[in-house]
């Protein structure tokens, strides 16, 4: 593509023209090789070895114990619930912000995505204050007649789901906002001028066209939800054990690093599988869009 990449331009030998890109890539490649690939490889190695050599014992321990299957199941359930909530609230929010002609729309989008800049620790803390026995959530449920006594939402799975969905909702809104913005509004007009009711046009045209973006956003939120640590650890505590908190417990508290590495590898493989699906999907979409 560039002149410098082709050999012998301006009479310079190939190795001279390759020198600049190699030097430009060198720092990044070095940092990644030492502090990313090497540690991940040794993590994999530790999860599949003991003092005697290679073994799959740690994976066998995971597979043979229903306690760990429960944790994995709870983690995936958390991911699913959080994805559904963020979709339900994210779709209308992103659509309204993308289609609104108000001069405030930009500011409102900024306000919705602002929580992304605040540490998840702080946001989970906010939910802890709301969830505690005499907190606002409990009082609201009682005044609505939905509960007779104080409700404890802290240290429960529903509490973790509500808090984590709030942490990830801005990301869903941001993804879907971009998707809706890229869909030509004239297509909706066309559908309606051909007699479709607005709801039908929204269903048949807009959501159909946004399908790829919706799946992409869902996969993103799902993989972040199953790897989240701060929210499950603070809001859920020991009773809502998920993969991330289990890994922390095995390593920092129980000092069983090989088994912690095994759990980490299982989480990594799950997330990697999801993101490969994500990549394939994006690629497929690009090919579809590139088609004339």
């Amino acid at each position: 593509m560039t002149q410098a990449a082709q050999s012998g331009v301006n009479g310079r030998p190939l190795w001279r023209s390759a020198l600049v890109p190699v030097l430009l890539f060198a720092p990044c490649v070095l940092v990644y090789a030492i502090f990313f690939i090497w540690p991940q490889a040794s993590l994999l190695g530790l999860s599949a070895s003991d003092k005697a050599g290679l073994t799959l014992d740690h994976y066998g321990r995971f597979a043979g114990d229903s306690y760990y299957w429960d944790i994995l199941g709870r983690t995936l359930g958390l991911g699913l619930a959080v994805t559904v909530i963020t979709l339900l609230l994210g779709l209308p929010t992103a659509y309204v912000l993308a289609r609104s002609q108000s001069r405030w729309a930009g500011f409102l989008l900024l306000l919705t995505t602002f929580p992304l800049l605040v540490s998840a620790v702080v946001r989970s803390f906010g939910w802890m204050v709301l969830f505690f026995k005499d907190g606002l959530v409990s009082k609201a449920l009682q005044s609505l007649g939905l509960a007779s006594g104080p409700v404890q939402t802290m240290y429960t799975m529903p509490g973790v789901i509500i808090a984590l969905a709030q942490v990830l909702l801005p990301l869903m809104v941001l993804t879907l906002h971009g998707v809706f913005k890229s869909i030509d509004r004239d297509l909706e007009y066309a559908a309606m001028s051909l007699g479709a009711r607005p709801s039908v046009a929204l269903w048949l045209v807009t959501l159909r066209l946004a399908r790829g973006g919706i799946v992409a956003g869902s996969l993103l939120v799902f993989s972040l939800a199953i790897s989240a640590f701060a929210t499950p650890s603070l809001v859920g505590g020991a009773r809502a054990n998920v993969m991330a908190t289990a890994i922390y417990e095995q390593t920092v508290e129980l000092l069983d690093w090989p088994f912690g590495a095994t759990l980490a590898t299982i989480l990594l493989v799950t997330v990697l599988g999801l993101s490969l699906a994500y990549g394939a999907l994006i690629e497929g979409r690009e090919k579809m869009e590139a088609r004339p």
């Binding site: 990313f36 640590f229 890994i247 980490a264 590898t265 989480l267 990594l268």
Partner: peptide, 13 residues
Amino acid sequence: ILPSLVLAVGLTL
């Protein structure tokens, strides 16, 4: 997309 916990365990080791 890497869970930071996975990176943290690997780097600590």
